[in-house]
């Protein structure tokens, strides 16, 4: 089993901490089934000349939160994709999450390179993927069309009365003066940031649907892959049926499930890909 990145620097009052859903994504992405799929999909083909460059996969995690998933995928690129040369991007509407993610990814990759057996030890650029940037952004809105090979999304999926407004907020992380009024304001802001990480509106599907709309545009047109976590209240079967009906050769399959049927959160992970 691949080690879970440390997120001890993450402030749980304003950033979603790794939880059951995050761990299900880690387990799924590192499962034999998915690593075989990804190695086949993005591996350096054995039939080509060793000299021929094979384009590095670009991985985008949308809504990184603590950065635990992006760090895991970037540091373990070789185990997951069969090649370490993966380029990683992350977005989040919460500036604290963007900062935390950067730290999580960088320290996980450095630790990974440092902890390799000395005979195998290489610099981080040879043994892990590379973080390009974490961006303050709504979903994948600033990403150029067709650029993303693998998109990962652990969405706000909990059904709620509405989705908090992301406008004009969240990227301003200046420390406020320490008086009662500003303490109340920063408490309110932090509550809203946390709510943004889990409140999904009607059926928990409002944010997921917006991402699904962007997906065909943002993914690599020949071989893009997306992993999206859904809960039972999102009615995953209906969502999958909708994706089957997209124009073009799209496939969708459940590739991970939480074992706990009795828990109120029954989770699954769907893989959407271009055949």
């Amino acid at each position: 089993m691949l080690p879970t990145p440390s997120t001890s620097h993450v402030d749980p009052n304003r950033i979603y901490e790794p939880a059951e859903d995050s761990y299900l994504l880690l387990d799924t992405l590192s499962s034999t089934n998915e690593t075989n799929f990804l190695k086949h999909h993005f591996g350096q083909s054995g039939t080509q000349s060793r000299n021929a460059p094979t384009p590095s996969p670009i991985v985008l995690e949308v809504g990184t939160g603590s950065g635990v998933i992006l760090a895991f995928v970037t540091a373990n690129a070789e185990a997951i994709f069969g090649r370490p040369d993966v380029l990683a991007l992350g977005t989040d509407v919460n500036n604290f999450a963007c900062q935390a993610t950067k730290q999580t990814v960088l320290q996980t990759c450095e630790g990974f390179a440092r902890d390799m057996p000395s005979g195998l030890r290489r610099s981080p650029s040879e043994s892990t993927g590379l973080l390009l940037a974490t961006l303050g952004a709504d979903l994948a809105s600033p990403i150029r069309g067709g650029m993303i090979d693998v998109l990962i999304f652990n969405p706000p999926y909990v059904p709620s009365a509405g989705v908090p407004d992301i406008k004009g907020n969240t990227l301003d992380s200046e420390p406020a003066p320490d008086d009662a009024k500003s303490r109340a304001e920063s408490y309110e802001r932090d509550s809203r940031l946390l709510a943004l990480s889990y409140e999904g509106g009607v059926d928990g599907m409002e944010v997921i649907n917006r991402l699904l709309e962007q997906l065909p545009q943002v993914l690599n047109r020949d071989k893009g892959v997306a992993y999206i976590l859904l809960c039972q209240q999102n009615r995953p079967e209906e969502t999958m049926q909708r994706i089957y009906n997209w124009v073009g050769d799209w496939y969708v399959e459940v590739v991970g499930r939480s074992g706990n049927v009795a828990g109120w959160e029954k989770l699954c992970i769907i893989r959407i890909w271009k055949g």
């Binding site: 500036n95 950067k102 940037a133 961006l135 303050g136 952004a137 709504d138 004009g168």
Partner: peptide, 11 residues
């Protein structure tokens, strides 16, 4: 700012 670009749009 501090290496992080802000792509959130005004309303």
């Amino acid at each position: 700012k501090e290496g992080i670009a802000n792509f959130l749009l005004p309303s």
